[in-house]
Amino acid sequence: MSFDEDFSLVTEDLSLHKIQKEIEKLKKQHSALQAEQRVLLEGRDSNVEFTKKFQERVVNMRRSLEDEKRKQELAVKKEQEKLEGLKQEHSRLKVEVMSMEQKLKTMDETNQNLRQQTEVSTAVPEKKVVFNGKTADGANALSFDMKPRIMYPMEGGTALITFEEEEVAEKILALKEHEVALGECSIVVQAEPVRFLVPSGVELDTQVCPHRILVSNLPKKESVDRILDKLEIHFSKSKNGGGEVEETDMLEDAGNVVITFMDSNIAKGLTDKQTHEVEMERGKKHKVKVTPFLNGSITVLQTCNITCKKTVLLTGIPAVMDQDNLQDQLEIHFQKTANSGGEVDAIVYNPPGRRSLAVFEEEAPEAEQSQ
């Protein structure tokens, strides 16, 4: 074997060995790649599992969020309903409070009215009364009756004649003109109805005067000046609960005395006690009643026109004779049934050139007239 052949063999051996090494290297790379592939596959499977679990968690989280959202919406709805209920309750309570305040105000006004009525009732002087068996409607009404006293102006040359029966006055008015014989002459007079504008309803606003008292139940036999002097002396003394007196006045129509004090803190104490013993004669005392004095003003005045049922106005009467004779002649004429007249209850003649005031008062009921 030549040298070239030996070299060729060596070369071949080296190439084979190199190939084997390369194969071994490739096997190792293949094994590494397989291992890396397994790792990647495991990583992929792990990622897929993680992704699946993550998606499940996302779904569960979304479902949980939706449930939480629904719960929150339901809670908000309940709170809104509760708030609306509270608002309605607040409105109801507000209305109830306003109603209670109005009721309290009404009760306060009622109490004030009752207090004023109590003071007014104690302000009435004592009078002896007796039940006469009669009843009237509206016993609980807060009102009072007025007896009218009307001043009717009479022109000159007129007469007022009042008949006992309304029918007679109606006949006289229906004829209008009447010829009255006066001996040798006669006169013609006109009959006219008597009309008044009178109050039909009056409302008064009364207040107790802090400076005045009303003294009633006074002795009948003493003179007015003596009564006023004794009352002023008694009620000016502090030991009697009085004070400095500014003025004393006698109410002639009622027979009571009004005493005015300088200070406003005197009257209340005296009216609270009511009964006071005043020395009218030396060593003799007389019990008087002290009640509040009321100041009042008319707040409502309603009026109406009325026609006098029994009284007729005669006009156009000349002064043909003296007043008394002419009045008698007129009465005689209108008493005769032939002249459509009847029984005359009252007559007054006012001559020409004179002006008089005729006083009209409320007619007493028949039951009272017969007593």
Rank of each mutant, 00 (worst) to 15 (best):
D4Q: 13
E5L: 14
L9S: 11
V10M: 14
T11E: 14
L14V: 09
I19Y: 10
K21L: 14
E22L: 10
E24V: 07
Q29V: 05
S31P: 02
A35M: 12
G43L: 14
G43W: 11
R44N: 11
N47Y: 13
E49W: 09
T51M: 13
K52I: 09
F54R: 07
Q55S: 12
M61D: 10
E66I: 11
D67V: 11
K69D: 08
K71F: 06
L74F: 12
K77E: 15
E79M: 12
E79S: 09
E79P: 03
Q80C: 06
E81C: 05
E84Q: 13
Q88G: 02
S91C: 05
L93K: 07
M98K: 12
E101D: 06
E101L: 10
L104D: 01
K105G: 03
L114C: 03
L114Y: 10
L114Q: 05
R115M: 13
R115G: 06
Q116L: 15
V120L: 15
S121K: 12
P125D: 05
P125I: 02
V130Y: 10
F131W: 13
T135E: 12
T135V: 14
G138I: 06
A141Y: 13
A141R: 08
F144S: 06
F144H: 05
D145L: 14
R149D: 08
I150W: 09
M151Y: 09
P153S: 04
M154A: 01
E155K: 13
L160E: 01
I161H: 02
T162Y: 03
T162I: 03
E164R: 06
E164I: 06
E165N: 10
E165H: 12
I172H: 00
H178N: 02
G183W: 04
E184S: 15
P193K: 05
V194F: 03
L197Y: 10
V202F: 01
Q207R: 10
H211D: 07
L214K: 05
V215M: 04
N217R: 12
E222A: 14
I227F: 01
L228A: 03
D229W: 07
L231V: 01
I233M: 11
S238M: 11
K239T: 05
G241Q: 02
D249V: 15
M250P: 01
M250T: 02
M250L: 14
L251Y: 04
E252D: 09
G255F: 04
N256C: 10
N256D: 15
L270W: 04
K273P: 01
Q274E: 10
H276F: 04
R282M: 13
P292M: 01
F293Y: 15
S297H: 09
I298A: 09
C308D: 15
L313V: 00
T315W: 08
V320W: 03
Q323H: 07
Q323V: 10
D324M: 12
L330P: 01
L330C: 02
Q335H: 05
V344Y: 00
A346Q: 13
N350F: 05
P351Y: 08
R355P: 02
A358R: 00
A364N: 07
